[in-house]
Design a binder for these strands. Structure first.
Ligand SMILES: [Mn+2]
Ligand SMILES: [Mn+2]
Ligand SMILES: [Mn+2]
Ligand SMILES: [Mn+2]
Lengths: 224, 224
DNA sequence: AATAATATTTAGTTATGACTAAACATATTT
DNA sequence: AAATATGTTTAGTCATAACTAAATATTATT
């Protein structure tokens, strides 16, 4: 009756894809997890039997209440570990995701509490993602995609994706780090680029890459 | 070709039993690991095919050079983690073995190095067991079993077993901790007890329990 | 040396979670 | 509506590592 590593990874993946559109398709899940669609079908049946997901053949999956709880618990552990690895073991932010992907399945509740305390009950991981609370609540901040920010507007980097080490290294080199102030200087729809100002440095980034970066803008739309 | 968690646990177990007598029997290994003898036979064949052990049916196993290296690597990781959990996360010495048993299989080489550095390149874990060096060397200290120490002789607690939390809690309560000075006041072979003096407190321990405790005695046999 | 006790291996089964190939369902064109 | 493309499930296989029951080896006892 114990939950396996695979189970936790599936629930976490479904949770992430679910935030985009309600129901998650077999193929999307397979692509995201790097396994074959047939494997996903098999696994979804098992998860459904354990009441962790609600699954209708050909129509996609959603998490049940208990499945969502477990997904958030794993996500919480994952993000606490990431921050711990950066803050206390001096790893760089591009290295920690892979490690956390393994650690998240073996850390006991007690150790998680200790790490949480040691870090001062943090609210965000190194990539700006919110850390779910111990009782499974997650607050989503109001943000916009960087590619949607208008010319002349500014804001604060809120969150970047944590999976791709290369992309993270690139972002780090250009100070595109959560907390930093950012201003859009020029947007070229034809050239698919965005000229930005960040920490007194100017930089041009592709619009495709900018899609992945979430920016927080104050109510007044950040004119300045 | 990647080594599994089971593989690492088997090699570590064989290593420990091997230090007692050269060849390890199927039954001893099964008892120690809490699995059936038939399961051990099956696993030993796999390990032999991978050249990690030298296995002769009905005659026992020994580690090959490469198997021994892997066992020591895992043991090193295990012991570094135990110390890390005590020193940096404030866990008690009876809790850490179980945690380390899981962590040892997921920690990357890089993180192991960081932990090693953070701890100041320690030579012993919280239970007094030596930590193998990064290149797979292990130095065994010259010690005696506490039940073999003669009346009136003294020494220093060197090492205690790390597997049984209850026993460790008992030892901790009575200051039977590596590094502490100990003196044998009275040995009752009939009553199977040992009266000891440790950190200005007197205590009586069973001879059977004393067998598990290793004591370091100076050359002059610790008269004092 | 024969018998009994103990240790070990073999054979067959189970659960987990991947895979491929083939069948089937749904969506999009023509 | 029929044809085609795409998405998804089914069926059968594989590797890993446990299990039980039965067979076989080794060791100890008479
Ligand atoms: Mn994971
Ligand atoms: Mn992250
Ligand atoms: Mn282990
Ligand atoms: Mn130990």
């Amino acid at each position: 009756m114990k939950n396996t590593e695979s189970t936790e990874n599936y629930l976490k993946s479904i949770f992430k894809l679910q935030t985009v559109d309600k129901k998650v398709s077999t193929t999307d899940l397979a692509d995201y997890m790097g396994v074959r669609a047939a494997s996903v079908t098999g696994m979804l049946k098992k998860l459904a039997r354990k009441k962790l997901v609600s699954y209708q053949p050909y129509k996609g999956v959603t998490l049940t209440h208990i499945g969502r709880k477990l997904a958030l618990k794993t996500l919480r552990t994952h993000r606490l570990i990431e921050l711990f690895l950066v803050e206390h073991l001096g790893l760089s932010w591009e290295e920690v995701h892979g490690e956390a992907e393994k650690w998240e399945h073996v850390i006991s509740g007690k150790i998680e509490e200790r790490i949480d305390k040691l870090l001062g009950y943090p609210l965000h991981d190194p990539h700006g993602s919110p850390i779910p609370s111990a009782n499974g609540e997650l607050k989503i901040k109001d943000t916009v995609r960087l590619d949607r920010v208008q010319e002349g507007e500014s804001g604060t980097i809120e969150e970047v994706p944590d999976e791709d080490p290369e992309f993270l290294a690139y972002l780090g080199e250009n100070d595109i780090i959560p907390g930093n102030k950012i201003k859009v200087l020029e947007k070229s729809v034809v050239g698919k680029t965005l000229k930005i100002q960040i920490t007194s440095k100017k930089h041009t980034i592709g619009l495709k890459a900018a899609e992945k970066i979430r920016v927080h803008q104050p109510k007044d739309k950040g004119r300045k």
